[in-house]
Amino acid sequence: MKTPEEIFELLKNKFGEEHITFTNDQAGDPYVTVAPEKFRAAAVYLSRDAEMKFDSLMLLSGVDDANGEKSKDENENEIITGGTLSVYYNLFSLELRHKVTVRVSVPRENPEIESITDIWRTADWHEREAYDMFGIIFKNHPDLRRILMPYDWDAGYPLRKDYQNPEFYHGMKVPY
């Protein structure tokens, strides 16, 4: 059993200080932020290492950080440019009974993260959902399609903070 701080120390020693940061000054759970280029390796390490053994991925959630530049378009709708989208991974080890939250932030304009479906199979649908809702692309995902929205939804990604409903979908009026 390890605290998130200990896990962070181990990760920092393994992957270098510049790629791993720790946030614990906020309410709630502290979390470890991993740079996207090191994330895949960190995930493998977290799941396989004898001290970690994170065998279970509780939740994978996409988040729109909405920390870019906000502006208005001609219809007074908010547009966000720049900033990041994040993915939070809540990991748990059934064997060692410890938890950690890992955050990966990717640029909003090019949100690409390595898929981890081969490590935790449960990530499959969660990643599809994050793609569906935020447009985060998971590289090497076996079947990255929309999951909750219709397969042919082409009006963007609904959970982004600057999402606008389309006027019509297949000739049906959307805002009612």
């Binding site: 906020q26 709630g28 759970d29 979390y31 509780m58 939740l59 938890k99």
Partner: peptide, 18 residues
């Protein structure tokens, strides 16, 4: 401000709120 992942044992399994 902050984030939390809390889970309970729902009849169907682990129900988590992030």
């Amino acid at each position: 401000a902050g984030s939390i992942y809390h889970r309970v044992e729902n009849p169907r399994g682990e129900l988590g709120y992030f």
